[in-house]
Design a protein around this nucleic acid. Structure first.
Length: 281
DNA sequence: ATGGCAGAAGCATTCTGA
């Protein structure tokens, strides 16, 4: 099963490029971020014609997330819920549409658009850290319920220096600071694995290139879009790739899609019993 | 240190993103 994530920077501007990509790649599930449209104006029909069902959670101009799926989506939830950590006031995040989740084949798909944060001195940075702390609380609750997780989206955090084209220039700054990395690691804890790093340990792989300064042509990118899976799913993970090609389109999104192949054919039979689910992180 | 590029809203220019 192919599961993909893509920050498209406006669903309406990017619609034909997204449809082209779907026709090429044929993903089973595609999670989008920065759709930038209210739900009533979302272009459902082009996706439905290709056999997909959709769940959208958008707003005017900013943010907005969607799950496009060939498989029936169950237990669809919009925004944070069930956070019992009293330090996390999830009501604070109701106005910005940044998270949507749904169950597919016994796995909880969580699609996130993490706030950018602007700069470390900005109040938006505080918002980003608080948002990530609420995401951690949200995942704590999912873990208590024994949910298997596939958490993906635009995290606006480069997990390590390997994930930045010029780490010395940006280390400690926005998307590369210790506070952001700590907050991200507190989301992941020991329960979630970076799919991409299972297959590739070297630097030089990016999912986002700034529109400015010819960043894509010069390949000056960052890896800030991620697909994290529960460690129990590791034995089912067959691949993880970043498809750079749409970034070379005319009027592209500044992000490229990231995709995993997860073997879920036999998930119900052996998921909780197989010895091959045990491994060292 | 600053701006550069792009999208939405809406019609000149501002806000936001990363």
């Amino acid at each position: 099963m192919l599961i993909a994530t893509w920050n498209v920077n406006s669903i309406r501007t990017r619609l034909s490029q997204i449809i082209d990509w779907i026709n090429q790649v044929n993903p089973d599930i595609l999670c989008l971020q920065e759709t930038k449209v209210i739900d009533d104006n979302f272009p459902f029909e082009p996706f439905e014609k290709l056999g997909y069902s959709l769940e959208v959670y958008g707003q005017k101009s900013y943010n907005g997330v969607a799950i496009i799926s060939k498989i029936k989506l169950e237990n669809v939830k919009k925004g944070f819920y069930d956070c019992t950590d009293s330090n996390q006031n999830i009501e604070n995040f109701l106005d910005q549409k940044r998270l949507i989740s749904a169950d597919i084949h016994g796995i909880k798909i969580i699609n996130v658009y993490v706030p950018n944060g602007s700069s470390l001195e900005s109040s938006k940075f505080e918002y980003k850290i608080n948002w990530l702390n609420s995401l951690a609380s949200f995942l704590d609750e999912q873990e208590k319920k024994g949910e298997l997780i596939c958490l993906m989206g635009d995290f606006n955090v480069a997990p390590s220096a390997l994930d930045i084209h010029d780490p010395k220039k940006y280390e400690g700054r926005i998307m590369a600071s210790e506070m952001e990395r700590d907050a991200l690691n507190n989301v992941l804890k020991k329960r979630l694995i970076d799919s991409f790093r299972i297959f590739e340990q070297n630097t030089g792989h990016w999912s986002w290139w700034d529109y400015r300064n010819n960043a894509f042509e010069l390949n000056k990118g960052w890896r800030i879009d991620h697909i994290y899976i529960s460690k129990q799913l590791l034995s089912k993970l067959k691949s993880c790739v970043i498809d750079c090609s749409p970034r070379g389109n005319l009027r592209p999104s500044d992000h490229a899609p990231v995709m995993i192949d997860l073997n879920l054919n036999d998930i119900n039979e052996d998921l909780f019993s197989d010895e091959d689910n045990f491994f060292e992180i």
